[in-house]
């Protein structure tokens, strides 16, 4: 067996990589949403209520992708 074959060998289900991606993507998204909210509240504390609602809707959309991505475990063999 030559070196390329040995290096390229993967065991297990490739869908596992997808669950990792389904976690990374929303993690970055929620990180940006929350970080920007902190920034906004620090600049204008009187807007905290509005920003919380915007943050919540941002998190909702981002985490929806995570839920669907991880739930594909049910259908991928």
């Amino acid at each position: 067996m030559d070196a390329t074959t040995v290096l390229a060998e993967i065991n297990g289900n490739i869908a596992t990589v997808g669950y990792g991606l389904a976690a990374i993507g929303p993690a970055i998204g929620v990180g940006i949403v929350v970080g920007k909210t902190i920034e906004g509240v620090a600049r204008q504390p009187e807007l905290a209520g509005r920003l919380q609602v915007l943050m919540w809707i941002g998190i909702a959309f981002t985490e929806a992708l995570a839920f669907i991505g991880i739930a594909t475990y049910f259908i991928f063999v």
């Binding site: 504390p45 009187e46 807007l47 905290a48 209520g49 509005r50 609602v53 915007l54 919540w56 809707i57 909702a60």
Partner: peptide, 15 residues
């Protein structure tokens, strides 16, 4: 979520 946020009335200087 979208419908509730779109219909919500929040003052600009809320707090």
């Amino acid at each position: 979520d979208v419908l509730v946020v779109a219909k919500s009335r929040m003052p600009y200087a809320s707090d």
